[in-house]
Design a protein around this nucleic acid. Structure first.
Length: 349
DNA sequence: GTAGGGTTAG
């Protein structure tokens, strides 16, 4: 991977104003084929069309909420968690009817609450409703909606939302691009993700951070490209970007799956002894799984002991890995012992 | 006063 080290990030809004918006055109043209940049006005019309809301209101999403007689108690602050979809929708409906309208932050929190419940299409509907009542959306809104599109494997629509943002002078940032990269990876378009990532760095369109690097590493590992993933890990260092346990776990797991357990252990040691990053149960599970696949039982026992010393409790995944591996080896009695330990631990906790 | 990644088992 040929990558240019990061430089001073530029203000993306200034690109648009100064005509450097051209730089983004090909990003959109590549990833959002429904838009045409030969005719900018067609782009604007299309982006309007895409985000024209359906006639349904937030309230009509749920008969349960419309039948409800009692009003939802208003959270005094949005920090009070909304964990129920009906409540979230009803609150949103009520917000749209207030005069003056609540701040965009309140609306964003509403969208986010719905997205967190994984009701992505519903969250997108609320965004359309925000447009109807003319809430001035911001970068947070855009990023939530892009994430929703991407999680639904509709990444090209995510890019269309990016275009919608440009139209309103809302600049994309590292969160926007991370969500889009993740969308491409979810759809197995890792090459597209790689191209976009390189472009972002080369043209200094945003400064990658831990999340963005980890996302790219995940994509590379997904397609067995461990070498490039490790190269990216090194680039993180050179760029002054901190790695975390998730970054390491992603590569360690990939190496273990490819039976490169010794390489995985080298990374493990680097993580713990050079970077001072503590492993977690996921790190151990990946390593144990890798060792089990190679029937390196002594080392499995050693790792389990190490976990105990580190006060990291085995998870149900740990037990599943062990039971599965022992059964495959015909060690049914041992598997039974492991199950009994698991049951006993369940009783103790 | 909000947003992006979240890795592991069967």
């Amino acid at each position: 991977m040929v990558l240019v080290l990061r430089g001073k990030p530029k203000n993306l809004a200034s690109f648009i104003v100064s005509g450097s918006f051209d730089k983004f055109k090909d990003i959109l043209a590549t990833h959002s084929p429904i838009l045409s940049f030969r005719n900018p006005s067609s782009f604007l019309q299309l982006s309007n069309g895409i985000f024209t809301p359906k006639t349904i209101s937030a309230r009509s999403h749920s008969t349960a909420s419309s039948n409800r007689q009692t009003m939802v108690k208003h959270p005094r602050s949005m920090s009070e968690k909304i964990t129920n979809l009906d409540d979230a929708l009803q609150l949103f409906d009520e917000m749209t009817q207030r005069q003056p309208l609540p701040s965009v932050v309140k609306f964003n929190q509403s969208l986010q609450a719905v997205a967190k419940m994984k009701h992505y299409s519903c969250s997108i509907e609320l965004f359309k409703q925000m447009n109807v009542v003319r809430v001035p959306v911001d970068a947070y809104t855009i990023n939530i909606v892009i994430k929703c599109c991407c999680q639904m494997h509709h990444t090209s629509e995510g890019f269309a939302v990016l275009g919608y943002g440009f139209k309103r002078d809302i600049s994309p940032d590292v969160c926007t691009f991370s969500a889009l990269l993740n969308g491409l990876i979810l759809e197995d378009s890792v090459l597209k993700a790689e191209r976009l990532f390189k472009k972002l760095i080369k043209e200094e369109l945003c400064e990658p951070d831990t999340i963005m690097y980890t996302t790219m590493i995940k994509g590379l590992c997904k397609f067995g490209n461990n070498d490039t993933a490790i190269a990216l890990l090194k680039l993180m260092d050179r760029s002054g970007c901190k790695r975390n346990v998730v970054t390491y776990n992603t590569i360690i797991d990939s190496l273990c799956k490819d039976q490169m357990v010794d390489d995985a252990f080298n990374l493990f040691k680097e993580m713990v002894f050079h970077k001072g990053i503590l492993p977690d149960v996921i790190t151990y599970n990946s390593l144990i799984h890798g060792l089990c696949n190679l029937c390196r039982w002594d080392e499995v026992s050693k790792l389990l002991k190490e976990m105990e010393d580190d006060r990291i409790s085995p998870s149900v995944n740990t037990f599943n890995i062990l039971v599965d591996a022992l059964c495959k080896e015909g060690k049914v009695e041992d598997a039974n012992c492991v199950i009994n330990i698991m049951i006993q631990r369940g009783k103790d906790s």
